[in-house]
Amino acid sequence: MKNTLKVERAILDLTQDELAQKIGVSRQTINSIETNRYVPSTVLSLKLSAVFGKPVNAIFSLEEKD
């Protein structure tokens, strides 16, 4: 699973810490999602989608190996 979290964050000019605070998670969680170490739950994905104002599948997409 790949994502465009870093790009979306840059568009809104948000730091990892600010984004983490907005959705009530730790900065480590945002960092792990951005570096593809962690695939977030549906709830967290929907929260991210609400912050960026984009559908979930515009932020997250499947890769060949998935």
């Binding site: 983490a20 730790s26 969680t29 792990s32 977030p40 739950s41």
Partner: peptide
Amino acid sequence: KEEIEDEYIVM
């Protein structure tokens, strides 16, 4: 718990 105990920390 951690200061922020979210789903990633739980994992």
